[in-house]
Design a binder for these strands. Sequence first.
DNA 1: CTCCAACCGGACCGGGCAGTCCGCTTTGTG
DNA 2: CACAAAGCGGACTGCCCGGTCCGGTTGGAG
Lengths: 181, 181
Amino acid sequence: MTALRADAQRNLGRILEAASDAYAELGPDVTIDEIARRAGVGHGTVCRRFPTKDALRAAVIRARLDELLARARELIEKPDAGAALEEFVWTAAESARRDRALFEGIEQCSSFADVAAAKQELHETVNGLIRRAQQAGAVRDGLDARDVGALVGAAIQASVHAERGDVWRRYVQVVLDGLRA
Amino acid sequence: MTALRADAQRNLGRILEAASDAYAELGPDVTIDEIARRAGVGHGTVCRRFPTKDALRAAVIRARLDELLARARELIEKPDAGAALEEFVWTAAESARRDRALFEGIEQCSSFADVAAAKQELHETVNGLIRRAQQAGAVRDGLDARDVGALVGAAIQASVHAERGDVWRRYVQVVLDGLRA
DNA sequence: CTCCAACCGGACCGGGCAGTCCGCTTTGTG
DNA sequence: CACAAAGCGGACTGCCCGGTCCGGTTGGAG
């Protein structure tokens, strides 16, 4: 696999960005045409770069997972375990808000080995955050990274149809309060 | 509009039940053919009774809303306001669990006047439950029926991909705890 | 500057699904 | 029982969308 030509590289970036925006705005069922239109690129170009619609979604999801993993690794150093987890939850919430497809579609994209691996790694790291917070008495027992991810994703999903733009913060706060010991 | 013939009545019932099951099992994107198959009825029969796929979904949603409204009206008589709201939340959760489409699809089905009206009425009644619970100090301020509905629906949605069958109870419990004052 | 390989984009194809239509069957009433 | 109206169901239609292909274009190495 040789390096992409400059224009191809540029288009690839545009496609990923457009796809991310489109997923956030229109949900996981956006058509390839819509994404191509937003990227200012032909339908065919998208399909050539990503052999399947799911492959595109997987690529977008993977980017988000990598961002979250980096953040989780920073936070695991933080002395206050409860605050660290809380901060991670807020970051994850913003990420989910930016791209609803992240949590909605992650299950079927797990068939892509790299996404599954990234998810696994993220879960292990976040489990570390959770375990520390539990030992500090800040979070109830019997929860793991999967649960927290699902609940945060759900809170964001719940706020999609709200009129006011900051409703999601209140919902995430409800979930955070519910997680406490 | 004269009464339906006996066989038509029977088929109508089967269709609604099959649709409800199918939505619960396969999500809101089930095909009409699948619903017809489950109801043991021809594709055409479904389409004749419900001129549009959305009309069918709206009918199913309306049935659920009516059930919930009846329950809410019972509970508003209950002396312990906090317990009444809590019980309603569990009922709503079970309803959402039985038919995920209820909360996922309710927005676009609001264009059907009867669904919108049923939703409105339910919201007003549930707002009564919430207000009483808030006055009793059992629930935090700044929440209305829409928020509670969204959060409960989200908790159920979040548990869809879990392996263990009782995960949804834990998630609903998290939300309930988060709602407290 | 030349040239070719990489790349682009839109025309095209095929499958799947919502909704329509009509010839046949069932209901129930007189 | 007879018969008209109501209902049934599956064949048919048109549309939408994901994925392919190829003639034309562009980048960048030499």
